[in-house]
Simulated scan of single mutants.
Amino acid sequence: MTVIGIDAHKRTHTLVAVDDLGRKLGERTVVATDEGHLRAVEWAGQWPQVSFAVEDCRHMTRRLERDLLRAGHRVVRVHTRLMAAARRSGRQRGKSDPIDAEAVALAALREPDLPVAHLDGPTRQVKLLSDHRHDLVVERTKLCGRLRWHLHELDPELQVPSRGLRRYRVIDELAARLADLDGTVARIARDLLVRCRELTVQINALERELRDLVEDLGPTLLAIPGLGVLGAAMILGETAGAARFKSKHAYARFNGTAPIPVWSGNKVRVRLNRGGNRTVNTALHMAAVTQTRGIGPGKEYVDKLINSGKTKTEALRLLRRRLSDRVFTALLTDERACQPTDRPACAAASSAHTATHLQPLPVAA
């Protein structure tokens, strides 16, 4: 098996091929376009068995992975940490595109269980919409803070309810009060209020769209107590297919709910994992906190742990891990049930995905 490591950049991709013993076989640099990707596939054709390894930075390698997968090649993703370790242990010192590409290939040889890339499915639409909604919420929060300072300057006795600037009634009442005021501050406040209303309309529309997608793609996931539409959307978008994980333990390591072993000798100890996918971890935490308030079986489980000597924080972490296992099972169930011929949303997303990503590669002149 020949492994081709790729160091990807905006304008060029550098490829280095190594054999199964780690010996360098060849090097090539191509432009970061569809034509350049075709040249990379043609160059790799000189070896009978080829596997590609790319650094795990999908904002940079998404189009490259797509073209390689469409050409029928296997593509694995190498975490930056693994690539850096391979580069430090290499014979050639320094840092360059060929050195990095060779480090990616060597890391792929050393690590047998790297994530395997797949063509984007319907869950990518959920991730894009969820991320876009989050960005709009962050923008609205920043805008509301500035608006409140201007309102305080105009009328210190004006009381705006907490989170009231996301409600249409409160926005309309403030707009009526500001309509008769003169001055630059009042003008800026009116402009900010208009923008706040626009953002609220967009955020609410995105939430409704996400609700329809999540109800169709993840009904079992959505049925977990404490997990709402937005939390389920975060999990669906970030997981990008639960079948790519070999077990519930691997999924727990992915989302940061699996503790890290830190023991030596007879006493087994672990510490909190502060890594992993923090977006999925946040969704699991929100579901755990909701369950501790009496929605679902989490409260009884946490009370039992506290009575046995655990702190509330420790009990919440254990509940998050239990929820991770349940979420993993629900994701697998929904993925098996979500067939394009059975579910309208899956069919529509799958059709759009096929039309966008499964066109044949261009033929070289």
Rank of each mutant, 00 (worst) to 15 (best):
D325K: 06
T80M: 15
Q125M: 13
C196H: 12
A101C: 02
R336V: 15
P122R: 00
R70N: 09
R166V: 14
I306D: 11
L319M: 09
P122E: 12
G218D: 00
R211A: 08
K248P: 12
G5F: 01
D155H: 12
I306N: 09
T200W: 01
H118K: 15
L213D: 00
K304D: 05
G45H: 09
H152R: 03
A179F: 06
A53E: 10
H9M: 13
A189F: 01
L361T: 03
V31S: 14
A189K: 00
G36E: 08
E157M: 08
V78K: 01
G72D: 09
E42V: 15
L210M: 00
D216F: 10
R326P: 07
T356A: 14
R269F: 03
M234E: 15
V54I: 10
M1W: 00
K142Y: 06
N307A: 14
N273T: 10
D97H: 01
N307W: 12
T313K: 09
L361H: 06
M286A: 09
R74T: 06
R253T: 12
A287K: 11
P259Q: 03
A365S: 11
R28E: 02
L323Q: 07
M83D: 01
A101W: 02
K310V: 01
I188S: 14
A85S: 05
A347T: 13
F52I: 05
V126N: 06
V302H: 02
T14W: 06
P344E: 10
A71R: 14
A117E: 00
R253A: 14
F52G: 05
V201S: 10
Q359D: 10
A105H: 01
N266E: 15
E314G: 08
R70K: 13
R343D: 13
W149A: 15
V126H: 11
A84T: 06
N273F: 13
P225F: 03
R343E: 13
Q46W: 10
G241Y: 09
